[in-house]
Design a protein around this nucleic acid. Structure first.
Lengths: 345, 345
DNA sequence: CTGAAAGCGCTAACAA
DNA sequence: TTGTTAGCGCTTTCAG
């Protein structure tokens, strides 16, 4: 910068002002300085600027990392979310620092703020560490989380209505005439737990008894799905439908079933979750519960920015939507009352 | 930091040394300082440190963004690459700044280095801007690129052997007895262009005439595949196999064909490219050319680090591998000579 | 409108 | 072993 100043015959202060479009500088000087800067391929050093300004247009996006399963990175859902966040942040002139932390120590995310590397943190998924997150929130750190709304939660979450999502999927399967609906998902995760609750509520509404044996804990991984289905079959538990808590899981379920000679949707109807791009290209195309990723990313960024401006963003729950494709059979009747009656007890 | 210094009864220099595990400081003092820092929840300010050290453990990962198609973000291949890069960078203690730039102005990536935001840049995909990239390389900027090795290239690329990959896929289809092999991909992209060359070489080796009408330009997008297949059918161009330049494309091709009543692989054999996780869960599981993403990410990071240490990394070409699954029929014979003869002419 | 000077939080000579 | 001091590249009062 001092080079530019010398060449332009002004002080560094003026160069700084010119480059930042300060109105305190003559249009003429500004033009000269800017021209000089361009010709020298000079740009303001962001690090120094940030140090001086004591702020920093960067947010850290943290993806929890399960050291055992590595789930987080392979799931297209997370990755789409990243894309959506990158867009939203860029739109607001923020840089995005991407990082992964061990899911057992989510509070490591606070480091980004403590060290001044980022102004705030967006955490994708709350995992099982409600407590750690609450502690960070108690420190009043600017952090927002993609996840479920939990009781006694001090931090700000943005997420989909998982109860409604679970219910939506289950109601649809019931409407298709299925009664023995298996539930697949890692219920230790808050979001999945709520989907299970939605599942149970839907069953109750339709007077179907909840059968615990139909609930199989499966991590998001592909092998999880295969094992789960195998477990059901080995235990001779009959099922005519599966509600899987991610599309990846659902697609593996479908192919496992097909390999075992069961037809989808004729023998077993399958509903997934997320509506990743691949879902519509699956065979058969997957009926699934869509999570609005684009809106989610935007909402996360909006909430964080509100935080950074001194506000206190409220948790927000986005609506989910059932996308009906061919992995479930046609519903038995359009008349919902009639269907409900027919299926009741 | 000065707070810590005061409380510990030492100077800031000593605090700095203690926190950086300098051997110049007593173990006792170090312990005291560190303890104090922890209790105060203090961490060194990375921005200031970087400014002083005039270095900066951050690399920018830049994903070109086609303003028209938005291809880059939705393709799982790119996203897996991101995961792999995040891992490799973290391993080396680097932060990863993720950003997207308009594919028409790849040179915007240089900004990250000019402004000191990052020490180097990893660019995912060279697109059609060989020239811009060469200009950056001429400035001797630390930047490495995932892409194809092109003639007269000044910059360092890491990528797979696309000619071999294209040939691998095509040879396999020929070995399966197919002769009318459609090629789908956006040949304006260097990588795809080389795959086409591999395809042509394989045809030539087997004395099959290259039919230009079987080559359909399709962007990586899903609609691209549908349109391409429709185009072939409308023009009454017969084909008994498709080589698609991404798995996403291939999976859409499969489902489009199935909808049109053609069986895969019986009527049409299909080979994809990338071997994304989903490929093995597709129906039928996709035969595809695997790109070693994990190794690729690692190689990109290694090359960039070499650059940063003053070296001049050489371009590197990684091997591809054919993964045979069920979207192609069994090969006609294990005896390759025989097969070749049978297919010749 | 412009310049001089101070200082953001840190590290590394150099001196003690 | 520790402290003093200077300065990384920038912005911004405060004077002129």
């Amino acid at each position: 910068m001092s080079d530019i100043a010398r060449l332009a015959g002004v002080s560094t202060a003026t160069v700084s002002r010119a480059l930042n479009d300060s109105p305190l500088v003559t249009a003429e000087t500004r033009a000269r300085v800017k021209e000089l800067a361009r010709s020298l391929n000079y740009t303001i050093n962001v690090g120094a600027k940030n140090l001086r300004l004591r702020r920093n247009k960067t947010v850290a996006v943290v993806v929890p990392y399960d050291s055992a399963s590595r789930q987080s990175v392979s799931d297209p859902f997370f990755l789409s979310m990243l894309g959506s966040l990158a867009d939203a942040l860029t739109e607001h002139g923020y840089d995005m620092l991407l990082s992964r932390v061990d899911a057992r120590q989510l509070d490591a995310a606070a480091q980004f703020i403590d060290t001044g590397r980022a102004m705030g943190v967006i955490l994708i998924g709350q995992w099982r560490h409600h407590d750690q997150l609450n502690q960070m929130a108690a420190r009043n750190l600017p952090i927002v989380i993609w996840g479920a709304l939990l009781p006694q939660q001090l931090y700000c979450t943005i997420g989909c209505d998982n109860i409604a999502g679970g219910a939506l999927a289950t109601e649809h399967l019931i409407a298709c005439g299925r009664r023995q609906i298996a539930f697949l998902g890692d219920t230790k995760l808050p979001e999945v737990h709520l989907r299970l609750e939605g599942y149970q509520r839907a069953l109750a509404r339709n007077n179907i008894r909840f059968n615990k044996r139909l609930c199989v804990s499966a991590p998001f991984l592909a092998e999880g799905a295969r094992n789960a289905i195998r477990e059901l079959q080995q235990r001779n538990i009959e099922f005519d439908a599966v509600f899987a808590c991610s599309d990846l899981l659902a697609m593996t379920v479908v192919s496992t079933l097909q390999k075992a000679g069961r037809r989808v949707p004729e023998d077993v109807a399958v509903v997934g979750y997320d509506d990743i791009e691949m879902a519509s290209h699956a065979h058969p195309p997957l009926t699934t519960v869509r999570q609005p990723i684009e809106a989610g990313g935007r909402a996360l960024v909006a909430a964080l920015l509100e935080f950074l401006e001194g506000g206190r963003p409220q948790p927000k729950t986005l609506a989910t939507e059932l996308i009906v494709r061919q992995s479930t059979p046609p519903v038995l009747s359009d008349n919902h009352d009639f269907t409900g009656a027919r299926l009741a007890q």
